[in-house]
């Protein structure tokens, strides 16, 4: 087992100890999911076939979105590295023979894996018990959704890593993160499917990385993309994941080279 695998398990086990927080997360996500579902059911009754979906599709979208919260973390938690830069503890990370971005990615994927299984699955199960909702057609579509979820987790990390790295330049990254937690849920389609946004706003949001966190995986779940369309959807996510991770790596290198570690 390599160091990054160990760190992945460390991230996973750490979240496993926060049992009350996990339960609270499932509760909030389920309740919010129910409220959204009722609203969207009303919308689809008024305008059936909106976005090419029926009401069961819309309800599935809502619960997939809620289930993804624990994975892509659109409201945080922020990565600890921002705090460590602010306090100067990043000095400790820098004297270790590890690559900073890979280290935090491994740890965050551990968190995401825990969130997917122990927060996402129960939240979705609540939705499936209470509402009629669409499920993927067969194992291939489930598999595509699993891939989309993994890519969403990478994009979620990529964005949060950049938010946290801003601490190298602005001294206090908390302002950046506060804005991020505000726009992330809207831009990703978490609060409202992007299909319901007026054009051209909707089209712009679809092109931005946030949509790769919720909108795209939810569409994959619903089977909106098949064949080449599916490849394009996953490719869109993969491209943003790669771009964000590479940007994170490049900025880390610049930051480490140029910016001073705070504190004595």
């Amino acid at each position: 087992m390599g160091v990054y695998t160990s760190v992945f398990w460390h991230g996973l086990r750490r979240y496993a100890t926060y049992r009350a927080a996990t339960a609270a997360g499932i509760l909030t996500n389920s309740v919010f999911g129910c409220v959204s579902a009722f609203v969207l059911i009303a919308v689809w009754e008024a305008r059936p076939g909106l976005a090419g979906w029926d009401a069961a599709d819309a309800v599935a979208f809502v619960f997939v979105a809620q289930a993804l919260i624990g994975v892509v973390a659109p409201f945080g938690p922020s990565l600890e590295i921002g705090e460590r830069i602010r306090t100067g503890d990043v000095a400790i990370d820098l004297i270790r023979p590890v690559a900073l971005p890979a280290w935090w990615l491994a740890q965050d994927l551990g968190r995401a894996a825990f969130g997917a299984v122990f927060r996402g699955v129960p939240t979705f199960a609540v939705g499936a018990l209470l509402f009629t909702l669409t499920l993927p057609d067969g194992p291939a579509q489930w598999l595509a959704f699993a891939a989309a979820t993994l890519l969403a987790a990478l994009v979620g990390f990529g964005l949060r890593y950049l938010y946290a790295l801003s601490a190298f330049w602005v001294v206090d990254d908390r302002g950046v993160q506060a804005v991020a937690w505000l726009v992330g849920p809207f831009f990703s389609g978490m609060f409202l499917p992007l299909a319901l946004f007026p054009e051209p706003l909707g089209a712009v949001l679809r092109a931005l990385p946030w949509s790769a966190m919720v909108q795209v995986p939810a569409e994959v779940f619903l089977g909106d993309h098949t064949g080449a369309g599916l490849a394009a959807a996953l490719g869109f996510q993969a491209a943003w994941a790669a771009a964000l991770l590479l940007a994170g790596r490049a900025l880390t290198a610049t930051a480490v080279r140029r910016v001073v570690v705070q504190g004595g």
């Binding site: 160990s6 460390h10 100890t17």
Partner: peptide, 24 residues
């Protein structure tokens, strides 16, 4: 660094050491 720790706050000492073993 006397004022900071290399160890992980939430891990038992033994696990911190195990993580360091893999790191080095």
């Amino acid at each position: 660094f006397g004022q900071r720790t290399t160890l992980w706050w939430d891990l038992p000492l033994r696990d911190s050491f195990a993580l360091l073993r893999r790191m080095y």
